[in-house]
Protein backbone atom coordinates (compact mmCIF):
# COMPACT_ATOMS: atom_id res chain seq x y z
CA UNK A 1 0.00 0.00 0.00
CA UNK A 2 2.66 2.43 1.10
CA UNK A 3 4.75 1.40 -1.87
CA UNK A 4 1.90 2.15 -4.29
CA UNK A 5 1.30 5.55 -2.70
CA UNK A 6 4.99 6.42 -2.85
CA UNK A 7 5.20 5.41 -6.47
CA UNK A 8 2.08 7.48 -7.33
CA UNK A 9 3.64 10.46 -5.54
CA UNK A 10 7.03 10.17 -7.23
CA UNK A 11 5.51 9.48 -10.63
CA UNK A 12 3.31 12.56 -10.49
CA UNK A 13 6.08 14.84 -9.18
CA UNK A 14 8.80 13.99 -11.66
CA UNK A 15 7.85 11.52 -14.38
CA UNK A 16 4.38 12.73 -15.33
CA UNK A 17 5.06 16.29 -14.29
CA UNK A 18 1.86 18.17 -15.09
CA UNK A 19 3.54 21.20 -16.58
CA UNK A 20 6.54 19.75 -18.31
CA UNK A 21 5.21 16.51 -19.70
CA UNK A 22 1.40 16.74 -19.66
CA UNK A 23 1.14 20.42 -20.66
CA UNK A 24 -1.40 21.39 -18.02
CA UNK A 25 -1.21 24.78 -16.34
CA UNK A 26 1.05 26.32 -18.96
CA UNK A 27 -0.42 29.83 -18.60
CA UNK A 28 0.59 30.39 -14.96
CA UNK A 29 3.84 28.49 -15.64
CA UNK A 30 4.83 31.04 -18.26
CA UNK A 31 3.01 34.04 -16.79
CA UNK A 32 3.90 34.02 -13.10
CA UNK A 33 7.43 32.59 -13.29
CA UNK A 34 9.37 35.82 -13.65
CA UNK A 35 10.29 36.01 -9.96
CA UNK A 36 11.05 33.12 -7.62
CA UNK A 37 8.89 34.46 -4.77
CA UNK A 38 5.84 34.87 -7.05
CA UNK A 39 6.45 31.41 -8.50
CA UNK A 40 6.57 29.91 -5.00
CA UNK A 41 3.38 31.68 -3.94
CA UNK A 42 1.53 30.48 -7.01
CA UNK A 43 2.86 26.94 -6.57
CA UNK A 44 1.76 26.75 -2.92
CA UNK A 45 -1.67 28.12 -3.79
CA UNK A 46 -2.05 25.49 -6.51
CA UNK A 47 -1.11 22.64 -4.14
CA UNK A 48 -3.68 23.92 -1.65
CA UNK A 49 -6.48 24.24 -4.21
CA UNK A 50 -5.67 20.88 -5.84
CA UNK A 51 -5.94 19.07 -2.49
CA UNK A 52 -9.20 20.86 -1.61
CA UNK A 53 -10.67 20.28 -5.06
CA UNK A 54 -9.86 16.57 -4.95
CA UNK A 55 -11.27 16.26 -1.43
CA UNK A 56 -14.51 17.81 -2.70
CA UNK A 57 -14.88 16.27 -6.16
CA UNK A 58 -13.89 12.65 -5.45
CA UNK A 59 -16.74 12.01 -2.95
CA UNK A 60 -19.15 13.89 -5.23
CA UNK A 61 -18.28 11.66 -8.17
CA UNK A 62 -18.26 8.42 -6.15
CA UNK A 63 -21.31 8.93 -3.97
CA UNK A 64 -23.52 11.26 -6.01
CA UNK A 65 -22.80 11.22 -9.74
CA UNK A 66 -21.75 7.60 -10.36
CA UNK A 67 -24.57 5.82 -8.43
CA UNK A 68 -27.20 7.94 -10.19
CA UNK A 69 -25.76 7.52 -13.69
CA UNK A 70 -24.94 11.22 -13.94
CA UNK A 71 -21.31 10.85 -15.05
CA UNK A 72 -21.95 13.05 -18.07
CA UNK A 73 -22.41 16.02 -15.72
CA UNK A 74 -18.84 15.54 -14.44
CA UNK A 75 -17.27 18.46 -16.31
CA UNK A 76 -19.97 20.98 -15.35
CA UNK A 77 -20.12 19.90 -11.71
CA UNK A 78 -16.36 19.81 -11.25
CA UNK A 79 -15.68 23.24 -12.73
CA UNK A 80 -18.48 24.79 -10.68
CA UNK A 81 -17.27 23.12 -7.48
CA UNK A 82 -13.74 24.33 -8.11
CA UNK A 83 -14.86 27.88 -8.90
CA UNK A 84 -17.09 28.05 -5.82
CA UNK A 85 -14.41 26.49 -3.65
CA UNK A 86 -11.80 28.99 -4.72
CA UNK A 87 -14.14 31.91 -3.99
CA UNK A 88 -15.03 30.44 -0.61
CA UNK A 89 -11.42 29.82 0.36
CA UNK A 90 -10.55 33.36 -0.59
CA UNK A 91 -13.30 34.82 1.58
CA UNK A 92 -12.41 32.53 4.47
CA UNK A 93 -8.71 33.32 4.25
CA UNK A 94 -9.40 37.04 4.11
CA UNK A 95 -11.48 36.87 7.28
CA UNK A 96 -9.58 34.35 9.41
CA UNK A 97 -6.00 34.37 8.16
CA UNK A 98 -5.22 37.78 6.69
CA UNK A 99 -1.46 37.12 6.71
CA UNK A 100 -1.86 33.99 4.62
CA UNK A 101 -4.32 35.82 2.38
CA UNK A 102 -1.78 38.51 1.68
CA UNK A 103 0.80 35.98 0.50
CA UNK A 104 -1.43 33.44 -1.31
CA UNK A 105 -4.71 35.29 -1.82
CA UNK A 106 -3.77 37.17 -4.96
CA UNK A 107 -3.08 33.92 -6.79
CA UNK A 108 -6.34 32.20 -5.85
CA UNK A 109 -8.72 33.74 -8.44
CA UNK A 110 -6.17 32.98 -11.17
CA UNK A 111 -6.42 29.32 -10.29
CA UNK A 112 -10.14 28.92 -11.07
CA UNK A 113 -9.43 28.68 -14.76
CA UNK A 114 -6.17 26.78 -14.32
CA UNK A 115 -6.49 23.60 -16.32
CA UNK A 116 -4.10 21.73 -14.02
CA UNK A 117 -6.65 21.79 -11.18
CA UNK A 118 -9.57 20.56 -13.29
CA UNK A 119 -7.18 18.14 -15.00
CA UNK A 120 -6.02 16.52 -11.77
CA UNK A 121 -9.56 15.95 -10.51
CA UNK A 122 -10.65 14.42 -13.83
CA UNK A 123 -7.51 12.28 -14.09
CA UNK A 124 -7.96 10.91 -10.57
CA UNK A 125 -11.39 9.65 -11.56
CA UNK A 126 -10.35 8.24 -14.93
CA UNK A 127 -7.32 6.50 -13.36
CA UNK A 128 -9.68 4.76 -10.96
CA UNK A 129 -7.86 5.93 -7.83
CA UNK A 130 -9.40 5.55 -4.36
CA UNK A 131 -9.72 8.54 -2.05
CA UNK A 132 -6.28 8.31 -0.41
CA UNK A 133 -4.59 7.56 -3.72
CA UNK A 134 -6.35 10.57 -5.29
CA UNK A 135 -5.18 12.86 -2.50
CA UNK A 136 -1.61 11.60 -2.83
CA UNK A 137 -1.70 12.01 -6.59
CA UNK A 138 -3.02 15.58 -6.23
CA UNK A 139 -0.30 16.37 -3.71
CA UNK A 140 2.26 14.97 -6.14
CA UNK A 141 0.92 16.98 -9.07
CA UNK A 142 0.90 20.14 -6.95
CA UNK A 143 4.46 19.54 -5.79
CA UNK A 144 5.49 18.87 -9.37
CA UNK A 145 3.90 22.16 -10.42
CA UNK A 146 5.74 24.01 -7.63
CA UNK A 147 9.02 22.34 -8.58
CA UNK A 148 8.63 23.23 -12.25
CA UNK A 149 7.64 26.84 -11.43
CA UNK A 150 10.58 27.42 -9.08
CA UNK A 151 13.14 25.77 -11.36
CA UNK A 152 11.88 27.71 -14.34
CA UNK A 153 11.87 31.01 -12.44
CA UNK A 154 15.56 30.41 -11.79
CA UNK A 155 16.22 29.67 -15.46
CA UNK A 156 14.24 32.71 -16.55
CA UNK A 157 16.15 35.11 -14.34
CA UNK A 158 19.24 34.13 -16.37
CA UNK A 159 17.44 34.28 -19.72
CA UNK A 160 16.26 37.84 -18.96
CA UNK A 161 19.88 38.98 -19.01
CA UNK A 162 20.67 37.37 -22.37
CA UNK A 163 20.19 39.05 -25.74
CA UNK A 164 18.44 36.68 -28.18
CA UNK A 165 17.78 37.50 -31.88
CA UNK A 166 15.02 40.10 -32.31
CA UNK A 167 12.29 37.66 -33.41
CA UNK A 168 12.99 35.43 -30.41
CA UNK A 169 12.63 38.15 -27.77
CA UNK A 170 9.89 37.65 -25.21
CA UNK A 171 7.70 34.58 -25.62
CA UNK A 172 9.72 32.48 -28.10
CA UNK A 173 12.93 32.43 -26.05
CA UNK A 174 10.88 31.63 -22.93
CA UNK A 175 9.36 28.63 -24.71
CA UNK A 176 12.75 27.44 -25.96
CA UNK A 177 14.12 27.55 -22.41
CA UNK A 178 11.00 25.71 -21.19
CA UNK A 179 11.81 23.07 -23.78
CA UNK A 180 15.29 22.59 -22.32
CA UNK A 181 13.93 22.39 -18.74
CA UNK A 182 11.37 19.86 -20.00
CA UNK A 183 14.17 17.87 -21.65
CA UNK A 184 15.89 17.56 -18.27
CA UNK A 185 12.70 16.10 -16.76
CA UNK A 186 12.48 13.73 -19.71
CA UNK A 187 15.50 12.02 -18.22
CA UNK A 188 13.39 10.85 -15.26
CA UNK A 189 11.22 8.61 -17.45
CA UNK A 190 11.67 5.04 -16.27
CA UNK A 191 13.22 6.00 -12.93
CA UNK A 192 10.09 5.22 -10.95
CA UNK A 193 9.43 1.99 -12.84
CA UNK A 194 12.92 0.78 -12.05
CA UNK A 195 12.71 1.86 -8.39
CA UNK A 196 9.47 0.04 -7.74
CA UNK A 197 9.86 -2.83 -10.19
CA UNK A 198 6.98 -1.68 -12.35
CA UNK A 199 4.58 -1.37 -9.42
CA UNK A 200 2.53 1.15 -11.37
Amino acid sequence: MLKTLLSILLASVIVNNYVLSKFLGICPFLGVSKKIDQATGMGLAVIFVMLLATAATWPLQTYLLAPNGLEYLQTIVFILVIAALVQFVEIALKKYAPALHRSLGVYLPLITTNCAVLGVTLNNISDGYGFIESMVSSLGCGLGFLLAMVLFAGVRSRVEKAIPPVAFRGIPITLISASIVSLSFYGFAGVVDNLFGGAL
Binding site: L20, S21, K22, F23, P165, A167, F168, I171, P172, I173, T174, L175, I176, A178, S179, I180, S182, L183, F185, Y186
Partner: peptide
Protein backbone atom coordinates in the same frame (compact mmCIF):
# COMPACT_ATOMS: atom_id res chain seq x y z
CA UNK B 1 7.03 17.19 -24.51
CA UNK B 2 10.34 19.07 -25.06
CA UNK B 3 9.76 19.13 -28.83
CA UNK B 4 6.33 20.69 -28.25
CA UNK B 5 7.75 23.71 -26.40
CA UNK B 6 10.56 23.98 -28.96
CA UNK B 7 8.36 23.95 -32.08
CA UNK B 8 5.89 26.36 -30.46
CA UNK B 9 8.72 28.78 -29.70
CA UNK B 10 10.04 28.54 -33.26
CA UNK B 11 6.58 29.10 -34.77
CA UNK B 12 5.89 32.21 -32.70
CA UNK B 13 9.34 33.53 -33.58
Amino acid sequence: APGGFFVFGLLIA
